[in-house]
Amino acid sequence: MTLEHYLIAAGILFCTGLFGMIVRRNILVIFMCLELILASATLTLVAFSRFRLTSGLPDIDAQMLVFFVITVAAAEVAVGLAIIVSLYRSTQSVHMEDLHTLKG
């Protein structure tokens, strides 16, 4: 397992997430795809951390950063879900086509 394997895996994860966001209509699914993208970014961080050796030891800074990312992501999920719930309450829909108030 080299760094490339991890990066390719993260790339696949990212593209899956992006593809899902573009093609899916349910906002909840889009939200889940967003989480996939975030996970791919996290994975990249960990991979780089693991393969960047300083005097034989991996660089631990990025892995610490990942913990922050996960924590913030958890909070972000809470906020995002809350927005979706209130959106559903006001529009009775979770479909993207129905959300076009900001159409120019």
Binding site: L18, I22, I30, M96, E97, L99, T101, K103, G104
Partner: peptide, 18 residues
């Protein structure tokens, strides 16, 4: 002209972002 860029569709924005 510029309002064409604001169709109100999230997918369109995502494609643009991608």
């Amino acid at each position: 002209v510029f309002r064409r860029m604001q169709p109100g569709s999230l997918h369109f924005y995502l494609v643009l972002a991608a």
